[in-house]
Simulated scan of single mutants.
Amino acid sequence: MPIGKMKKHKEMLQHPVLRPHLPETHWFTDSRTSRMLNTYSSVFIKPNHGSGGSGIIRVKRLKKGYEVRRGSSRRIVGSRFVLRAIKSYQKSRHMYLVQKGLRLAKYHGSIFDTRIYLQKPGGKWVISGTAARVAAPHKYVTNYLKGGHAVSLHRVLFSLFKHNRTKADAYFREISKLSVIIAKTINKRHPVRELGVDIAIDTKGRILIIEANSHPGHMLFTQLPDPTMINTIMRNKRLIWK
């Protein structure tokens, strides 16, 4: 069974380098969710076991009440009914966590985050692929299965920092460094040999860890015009599973 999101979050939280980059995350309860809704302008409610952006609920504070969204479905409700609206979108057999909403930086008007694909074909972790995941218009998740598409991470960072290559390169190195630390941290307790790390940059330029996926999909990298990364991923997969 895949490793739950909360288990990975707690393991990363123990690492002093990773801790400052982790948004506040808790198990979903009425009281905790209410407190976070009072603290933050938005929160995300995610199934503990889920992938591809499936089942994610976003709750956004409005001038009056809240917008509760899952996929293309949305409701506007008052504060008295926000928890009821959230639960109407949840599946009873799933455990959920609640996470501080992030104000993601944008590329050409759409939010984006980064996917770092790490593999361990031998004795050490290597980064086989890096890409920016740019959300489809009006979407609040960037996942490939929800219409997100891949763009060269270097290109997106270069655009984000107004063609300041020094700054773009520094962010790329920091994201890469954090990803390897995440892989090593999770690998201490779990026998994983592939990991997809999702890292965001918010509107204030902060680097934030969204999550680490122990069964990452690789189709995102087929969208890049240069096939080098997908070829590397597939070659390392053969080494891992031979």
Rank of each mutant, 00 (worst) to 15 (best):
H21P: 03
T25K: 00
F28Y: 09
T29P: 03
D30W: 02
D30M: 08
R32P: 02
T33D: 09
T33L: 08
S34P: 07
M36Q: 05
L37V: 04
L37M: 04
L37N: 01
N38Y: 12
T39K: 08
T39M: 10
Y40T: 05
S41C: 14
S42L: 02
S42H: 05
V43Q: 00
K46C: 06
K46M: 07
K46G: 06
K46Q: 08
P47K: 04
N48K: 08
H49G: 13
G50P: 03
G50A: 00
G50E: 02
G53V: 02
S54K: 13
G55H: 03
I56N: 03
I57T: 05
R58T: 08
R58G: 09
R58Y: 10
L62N: 03
K63Q: 11
K63L: 13
K64L: 15
G65D: 04
G65C: 01
Y66E: 04
E67V: 06
E67G: 09
V68Q: 07
R69S: 11
R70N: 11
S73G: 13
S73T: 14
R74Q: 11
R74S: 09
R75P: 10
R75V: 12
I76C: 12
I76D: 13
I76N: 14
V77E: 06
G78M: 14
G78R: 12
S79M: 04
S79K: 02
R80Q: 11
R80D: 13
F81Q: 12
F81W: 10
F81M: 11
L83T: 00
R84D: 14
R84L: 14
A85L: 00
A85T: 01
A85V: 01
A85Y: 00
I86H: 01
S88L: 10
Q90Y: 02
K91P: 00
K91S: 06
K91N: 08
K91Q: 09
K91A: 08
S92P: 04
S92D: 12
R93A: 13
H94T: 06
H94W: 09
M95L: 15
M95A: 15
Y96V: 01
Y96W: 07
Y96F: 03
L97Y: 04
Q99T: 01
K100F: 07
K100H: 08
L102Y: 08
A105P: 07
A105I: 03
A105N: 04
A105Y: 00
A105D: 07
K106W: 14
